[in-house]
Design a protein around this nucleic acid. Sequence first.
DNA 1: GTCTATACCCTGATAGAC
DNA 2: GTCTATCAGGGTATAGAC
Lengths: 208, 208
Amino acid sequence: MPRRSAAEGEPATRKERAAQTRAALLTAARSLFAERGYLNTKITDITAAAGRSTGSFYEHFASKDELLEALLADLENAADARLADGGPETAHDLTDRAQLREHLAIAWSVMSEHRPVTVALFQSMIAADPASGRAWHDLTSRSETLRDHLTYLRDRGHPLPGDPELIGTAIAAMLSTLNYALPDADADAVVDTLTDLLLTGLAGDRTA
Amino acid sequence: MPRRSAAEGEPATRKERAAQTRAALLTAARSLFAERGYLNTKITDITAAAGRSTGSFYEHFASKDELLEALLADLENAADARLADGGPETAHDLTDRAQLREHLAIAWSVMSEHRPVTVALFQSMIAADPASGRAWHDLTSRSETLRDHLTYLRDRGHPLPGDPELIGTAIAAMLSTLNYALPDADADAVVDTLTDLLLTGLAGDRTA
DNA sequence: GTCTATACCCTGATAGAC
DNA sequence: GTCTATCAGGGTATAGAC
């Protein structure tokens, strides 16, 4: 049986302590990313906020970028779990107001709930060399589901405003940037407006 | 009469030389911003590309940020001149396809033609502390004209998808981010798609 | 005004004791 | 694994000669 320190509530195995440190770093990073952003947060800021030493950081992550990967992995696990609960994997007809709205609402709430990661990913994307094409790549892959639904629509004979990939990416650009810029907005109001804008446009008949 | 150096084509007054250096720095900055982006461009990169010394930079600008201000001022002067030539200051009814398209086309071409400044401003905006609200502020002020046109529409009795300021900012977000991500796109194709998307939406009747 | 040289600070990353 | 201490590199900004 492993040795334990005298008397306190904390577990004491090496593994557990390591996990605690790792978790503390992730938690600290999260709150700092949301406050000051990813780019302005230094590794030393994270370790300080977590109450650990600078050197300790590298025992868990090779770089700030790798820490972000870990946060992202957590996010994806959470999202998967949520979908498994019974997500609206059925929505396909984006010309149906309720379905379009649902799609936008989910996107908006996921971004808002995971704001630290969202902010970090967005800043990281924009800070990359513009010539690298990373922004286009990220936005495009972020809107895969959307694109699939659009392609589905087009294949069913519904004419679209243009190429599904371009439309999907444009919408992703709008959502990502607006959510980044407007963290404290009333979600329902924003989603309502965007739903209406994307469904029937500026010239849409709203007399009904 | 001021002294001149022996024999060459270059003018030699202090003022002129200073202006040349300043111009060289601005030009160098422009090309570097377009290539590597604003954030990744260091002051030493600019001076090196301009063929000047590091110290010389501070004789003209207090910081990289101030240099960007200067570039922005140039851009605004150019834009003003272009408008004075006979810009489409008449466009008001954004529910008219031609007028909406014209508005979007101008926005897109201005962003593309001044890509170095556009890229720099965008990166600078995103790199700011997320809590500062700068992103919202920038996007909102960037879409003032759009908002005015939308307000005009609403006041004329045309129902909009929501608050004009929100809609205008959402569109600005889409345009800015998409243009940032897609520098080499076929402008006409993009503008066509966005026009159609914003005019009548995904559910718009395109049978005609 | 422009240059060279350099001081200075911040940040990332490592070494070695515990 | 975690800490303290420290180093190396890159980047900003200034000093002083020309």
